[in-house]
Nucleic acid binder design. Structure first.
Lengths: 208, 208
DNA sequence: ACGATATTGTTGCAAATGCAACAGAAATAT
DNA sequence: ATATTTCTGTTGCATTTGCAACAATATCGT
């Protein structure tokens, strides 16, 4: 879902200047590493350059639950996640990640409406963070596994501009993302194949 | 969930000045009315002053589904909702509403880091819009009705600062919000009462 | 190239949830 | 003050979904 990129509409020079202005540093996080833990004290924001990262909630038993996944261009951090003691949140690297790291407060620091690219950046931040969540809610609000899957696939399809999709995350994590049991989801995918609603093999799915 | 207010940390004078700067007009919408329809052309933003409003998605059969509810201070509009043809979105007035209406683009117009209150406003907009959604996702990602309810109640309790809560929306809409069948939710509430996890009568619920 | 690890795919069974339908209470409108 | 609409509360039953457990592939790391 990559139209939700923080740098949309910025050219290379503007992007570079902006990165300097918000004082962002590119860092590498290896697969499996915890990138941020989102506590009330944390003030870090990240923009994913390359790789795949998850926002997970962690319950009292240490079980993790995928709340969101981030593709290149997506922005994440304590700024966008609830500062609460109901659940613990963290960002983890599902694959090796290149991430631009900077402080929350720098998103809206030294703004001046003359800096058109900074204004654009703030707009991107607002829209990308909230719209991505709202899509997720729309998916989760569907009452059956089939509808959840089809809603997810529709959004992905619209975003990729094709009806043949390669999932950005493993099926096992997709089940987590749409909040259903993996085996039940697999069963539903099989049924949808039988009913010629989709054709799929592994992570490659065509909507018919 | 009213710490997610667009005007947090602003005093009356700053608020008034800001309202002028973003050129916001207060409007009244009667109960049941459609406030905005969120199409790709719409560019309106609203801040709820008084009342109760819902973000609904509308499917092909015209059935509406509550994706979010807004309490005084909350901000909503096309800026925060996906611009997509997968589903249709609209904001509707559940009760009579007073709403500050202004254009998307004015949120980040004429910014200057000297205007501390405007910076604060933008920060509020970012955090309130994205955190409210993320809480909703956290609720929906719970796998049972009981856990969904308890997660919802925990957030509400934390926000209200009390363990005895009056729901801001009817139980029938709460079922929609946590995306479960209403009768199944009622059954679960009864069980939780029997097991002394909560005591409740109608919209008044105490967490034990 | 090989072993280790992660992911996909499948099933039987139990349990939770949704659906439909209705009665009663509460709130709202006139 | 009363009628109308909305909301709460309940039940039986069908269905979906989750859980547990396992085999078969695919992918990754060295």
């Amino acid at each position: 879902m990559n139209k939700y990129s923080a740098f949309n509409g910025l050219n290379t020079a503007e992007k570079a200047e902006l990165i300097e202005q918000i004082n962002a540093k590119e860092k590498l996080y290896e697969k499996g590493r915890r990138i941020f833990t989102l506590t009330s004290e944390s003030d870090e924001t990240g923009i994913l350059i390359q790789g795949l990262a998850y926002l997970v909630s962690i319950n009292n038993y240490g079980e993790e639950n995928i709340l969101e996944y981030y593709s290149p261009g997506n922005i994440f951090g304590s700024y966008f996640s609830p500062d609460t003691n109901v659940n613990l949140y963290a960002i983890t690297a599902k694959k090796d990640c290149n991430i631009l790291v900077f402080k929350n407060t720098n998103i809206v620091s030294n703004v001046n409406s003359v800096n058109k690219y900074h204004i654009k950046f703030i707009n991107n931040v607002i829209t990308s963070a909230s719209r991505k969540s709202q899509i997720h809610i729309d998916i989760l609000s569907q009452r059956t596994i089939r509808k959840k899957l089809l809603t997810y696939l529709s959004y992905l399809s619209e975003n990729e501009g094709t009806r043949t999709l390669t999932l950005p995350i493993p099926l096992s994590d997709l089940a987590d993302y749409i909040c259903v049991d993996r085996s039940a989801m697999m069963r539903e995918i099989r049924k949808m194949n039988n009913e010629s609603i989709i054709t799929s093999k592994g992570k490659v799915i065509s909507i018919l």
